[in-house]
Design a protein around this nucleic acid. Structure first.
Lengths: 118, 118
DNA sequence: GCTATATTCAACCAAATGGTTGACCAAAGC
DNA sequence: GCTTTGGTCAACCATTTGGTTGAATATAGC
């Protein structure tokens, strides 16, 4: 409800989402919080590369990182997606500003269904 | 409901949306179709630069360009936004999307204000 | 205290991005 | 047929991006 301390720009968010590796990471985090090493495991690139990707995701506000012991846990930050999602909704409505679509959208939203389709 | 002939990837769409100039162009096209020169007018960069931006938007499927006479008309292609919007919804649902933000958005949209903010 | 584990940092590299300019092509206007 | 108008193309440039490697830091385990 309240604004974040420093709401990251659409620039940062969309740029972060433009990379397939980073989107895959986000999808992984949808299931559970993960340590950096575990995030890196399925990818064929260096740990350092993944670390960079995580930094980009964090600066976009899409994830948060919390260090517990020597392990840094990565956690999805769904709020960050909201601004860009709303921005895009504006175009979905485009077709004659159909409130029906909006209603459907709201119903869908309120019903709390959450299908992910990779 | 049917797939597009060549659905552009999320990569292309998100990358296209990551640039403020391109987002501003899309918002302009939300109001009406425009010729390339007219699209370029409010910006402080060369026509060639805008032309490049438009190419990127087109390859992402976000706009279509139709040449009538010597004028090339740019038209918003809202369907292209759907795939990425749906992808994001998957994350947004998580916390049951704030209706306030949506309302604010609608007010903004319905009031017909169109601040371009470079 | 040593060693292994978790993660980042720094320097580097190739390729992509966002912009410029000037030449070019195509369609109107007179 | 010139000239203007609308738009792209090509070559160039600086900066950013996405990756590498090797060294550095911090915590955990023994």
């Amino acid at each position: 409800m309240s604004h974040n301390t420093t709401a990251p720009s659409l620039d940062l968010i969309f740029a972060a989402l433009a990379d397939p590796t980073r989107r895959a990471i986000l999808e992984m985090l949808l299931e559970d919080d993960m340590a950096v090493t575990d995030v890196a495991e399925p990818f064929e690139m260096s740990l350092a590369a993944i670390s960079k990707h995580l930094t980009i995701l964090m600066r976009a506000g899409l994830i948060a990182q919390e260090k517990r012991g020597r392990v840094k846990w990565c956690k999805l930050q769904p709020d960050a997606m909201r601004a860009s999602s709303i921005w895009m909704q504006g175009f979905g409505q485009f077709e004659a500003l159909d409130l029906e679509g909006l209603e459907r959208f709201l119903e869908h939203e309120l019903s709390g269904s959450a299908e992910l389709d990779p």
